[in-house]
Nucleic acid binder design. Structure first.
Lengths: 211, 211
DNA sequence: CCCTAATAGATAGCGGCACTCTCCGCTATC
DNA sequence: GATAGCGGAGAGTGCCGCTATCTATTAGGG
């Protein structure tokens, strides 16, 4: 890890400054190294931005902040908070999302960024003629609930409050990357099994693949 | 959609040029508009880069390219292909992934970017003292298989080969965004139900929330 | 028929982001 | 005592997704 990068992180408030033993000598402890690992993970694996990480870590470090606020800060920053469109597909997608939430009895804030993200994705699909994707939303939601249960159970193992907070952040952000990769692997496997040795559909050649 | 942006997409090879009826007049058809929607979706919702989208769309448009190649091009570009580390955690994570793939009987290419991504995420977790997350990998994999089955079944509805290819790309990339948002919503719901009205654990205040 | 406004095409510039370089003053170390 | 390195702060770099500018041309209305 290059030294200027660390100094940059300190400047941006991601990393607390080391204790100055002299005007030009600072001591960095084990906590700093761990925090650095966390920053790198959120940055490289989680794809978060530096400013977002600063927000989340400030929330993590603040003991007065309630836990659900920290969780919200972490999850909200996984969203791409850009322009909301205002067309037919968006309205329909928002209605679809509201329906889904009601149908599953989810206790979620209606104005959560996740709701907006979901509606945005569904609206984009609808614009592409894939409005029928909404029909498989329940299957998706089932799997999402399953993953969420596992995540909560995993976090619940932790005893210390600080550890819980960190576990939530790590589980939320890195867990996303883990599931994404698993989904891609499962796709490869499923299509291999469905279409036989990676062959395109139509000609289901059961021959060995060479690549 | 600003005109210069469209010209930029044409320049980058995302969008075919319109048919020139005059040296300064080009006609854009319905296919162009649809392609534009696809580009915006992959860019805004899927978070892909312009160059990656160019690759994927080139693969989609090339009828000689086999389907699994297109799928690979699409899924591979969801990965963050940066530096692979070479430490203990990475090696252990790779072993964990290999084990998982064997255990689940997945027919996946060992050198797929998804494998590297998964190992990277697990290694990052291990470095943060969350090596125990590997224990819930099977639950994650179960959910991923479920989602993959749903995706494949959805794609299988399509009849035309071109539609299949597009469905795969859309389902893979936008489906990722959909599931991510659903997971976050399920998190919110699960933690609300577990900790009671969004309260932090320890003091389970059942009062109404005000935010 | 001509004048304006718009378009195609190409090049250069902008704003954001994650660093990275440089410079300064100082100090641990050989 | 020379050198190498640190802490701190501002400017610079490279990439990326646009966006503004420029020229040449032409559609379209009066």
């Amino acid at each position: 890890m290059p030294v200027p990068t660390i100094k940059y992180y300190v400047r941006e408030g991601l990393l607390p400054a080391g204790e100055l033993s002299s005007p030009n000598q600072a001591a960095y402890g084990e906590a700093h190294e761990r925090r650095l690992q966390l920053i790198r993970a959120l940055l490289d694996v989680g794809g978060m931005k530096v400013a977002e990480i600063a927000d989340v870590l400030a929330a993590v470090d603040d003991p007065t902040r309630p836990l659900h606020k920290v969780l919200g800060t972490a999850t909200d920053h996984l969203a791409g908070a850009d322009t909301e469109r205002d067309d037919t597909e968006s309205a329909a997608a928002r209605a679809t999302v509201t329906d889904l939430i009601a149908r599953r009895g989810w206790r979620t804030d209606e104005c959560s960024p996740a709701v907006a993200d979901l509606a945005k994705a569904l609206a984009a699909m609808a614009r592409l003629g894939h409005g029928a994707f909404a029909e498989v939303l329940d299957d998706y939601a089932e799997a999402a609930e399953q993953v969420a249960r596992v995540d909560l159970a995993y976090v619940d193992r932790r005893a210390e409050v600080e550890e819980i907070v960190e576990s939530v952040v790590i589980g939320t952000v890195l867990g996303e990357a883990v599931f994404s990769a698993l989904r891609r692997l499962a796709h490869i496997d499923a299509s291999a099994k469905l279409y036989g040795a990676d062959g395109p559909p139509g000609r289901r050649t059961p021959g060995r693949r060479t690549d």
